[in-house]
Every structure is written in C-alpha cells, then in structure tokens.
C-alpha cells in the first residue's frame, strides 16, 4: 500500500469499473506482482507503462483471468468487476472473458475467413439468432473497428491474408463483436508500422465512448496520446497512478521521473 499513498484521491469511486486490491502474482517462485491496488474507470482509456518485465502485462492478464491457463501461476488479492470478485468460485472465466475483451501484442487472427473470425465470439456465445443477425453483428463490429470499408468485399477470404495493421484491427473487431464491457489491449501496436499504429490509436480513442479500455504500452508517447489515466509499474510494484497529463508533467515519485526522463527502463 506504500506505493498507493500518492495516488490521486479525486477518482470518482462510483465510476470504477474494475477495482483491484492487494493483488500479488507468483510465477512459480518468482514474485511478479507485489501488492497492486488500482481502480479503473469506465469509458476511459487507462494505460499501463513501465520497463519490460515490470509486471504490467501480467497484471493485465489477471483482469480477465488469462493467467489461469498457465499452470505455475498463482494470483492472490481481490479484483472486482462492477463490485463482483472475478476470482470467486462462482465466476466462470468463460463468462468473464466474454465481458472483458482482449487484444494481443501480435495480431492473432484465426486461420479462418475474416467473417468467421469476427463471428467466432458471437457464435460460441450464441448471440445471433439468425444468419442476418450475425451478418449485422459482424458488420457492426467491423465498422466500429474502422476496417469495414477495407474488407467488405472480401469477407470470406482468410484473415491471415491481411496486412499487419488490418489484422490487428480485425482482432479488435473480433474482440468487440461480443459486446464486452472492458477492452484489454496488450501492446496492441508493437508489431505495427507507424501508419497502422496511428489508425489503431485513432480507433482506441473511438472505443473509449463505449468501453473501459486498458492498454499496456512500452511507448510513453502512445500512453500520452491515447490515455486519460496512466499507471506506472516498476519491478512488480504499481508506483504511481493518475491523470495522464499530470503524471507526465509532474510525477510524484522519483522512480516515475527517472523513467520518464529515460534513466530507468
């Protein structure tokens, strides 16, 4: 809790979508996250920054319980989504992940057609009542991911045939097709060229209107560009969390300052 003392108190508690308290994470004997507490607001872009290996991606994966798939991984502490503990025995990770979408570092379209990629989520969750319904869901998701115009004529070609930037936007479309409430993005632009990055960043800003977006990034500029809140992680600690503008201009913690000025990381 020591690191949290400087966290701004001006967060509107009622607006917190996700609330984490005292999260610790171990990979085998490696203590990867140390007592992390944070509140993530709805309809806001929150970015996690920090040097590589600081635990920011691990923490992101705690939020939709993707760490469950790793045998040696152990999570303690409390993570609440809309006031409900996501690690409770009654919570089905399958349902949780339908509520919390995720986009990965490297675009990972399934080796299926563009249409089937986007339709996959709605299909497994049984969200479409008819073929027309499904077509509408797919179109809506692709439009919101700002890729519809580029792919509408080749929906049945393999998604792996698209360019890197298009693939990543396809993955975003795939994630939002299930209408999640939170969207987690793990360095979504690290494998993309600058133009594609700009497109995706623009998209993230769009998505903020409907979702709570959490983005892990290794680029401080990106965090500054897209996010309203920023959290700085270092060696498994959440060092500082606050409004992006404030954190980048007047950091409270010397470690944050060192990182921002390039002395660590």
């Amino acid at each position: 809790m020591n690191d949290m003392t400087k966290v701004e108190r001006d967060l509107n508690m009622s607006d917190a979508k996700i609330e984490a308290r005292g999260v610790n994470l171990h990979y085998g004997t490696n203590h990867a996250l140390k007592d992390v507490s944070i509140e993530i607001a709805d309809r806001t872009v929150t970015s996690f920054i920090g040097p590589s290996g600081c635990g920011k991606s691990s923490f992101l994966r705690c939020l939709n319980r993707m760490n469950d798939t790793i045998d040696i991984c152990r999570v303690t502490g409390q993570i609440m989504l809309d006031g409900q503990d996501i690690n409770a025995a009654s919570v089905d990770p399958v349902q949780l992940r339908a509520q919390i979408g995720m986009v990965f570092q490297k675009p990972n379209p399934f080796p299926k057609s563009i249409y089937d990629n986007v339709a996959y989520g709605p299909k497994i969750h049984g969200l479409a009542k008819s073929k027309a319904d499904m077509d509408a869901i797919v179109e809506k998701a692709l439009r919101r991911a700002a890729i519809w115009d580029e792919v509408k004529d080749r929906l049945h070609e393999p998604g792996t045939g698209l360019s890197g930037g298009q693939q990543q936007r396809l993955c975003i479309a795939r994630a939002i097709a299930t209408e999640p409430e939170v969207l987690l993005m793990d360095e979504p632009c690290s494998a993309l060229d600058p133009i594609a990055t700009a497109q995706v960043e623009e998209l993230i800003d769009e998505l903020r209107r409907d979702y709570a977006v959490v983005i892990v990034t290794h680029s401080m500029q990106q965090a500054a560009r897209v996010s309203q809140k920023t959290a700085f992680f270092h060696l498994g600690h959440l060092v500082e969390f606050g409004d992006t503008g404030r954190l980048f201009t007047t950091p409270n913690d010397p470690r944050t300052e060192s990182y921002l000025t390039g002395r660590i990381g």
Partner: peptide
C-alpha cells in the same frame, strides 16, 4: 451488453 450477459 446487459442482455448479452444474460444470454451468455
């Protein structure tokens, strides 16, 4: 989103 959650 809400009705989806019930559906799911």
């Amino acid at each position: 989103g809400k009705s989806n959650a019930e559906h799911i």
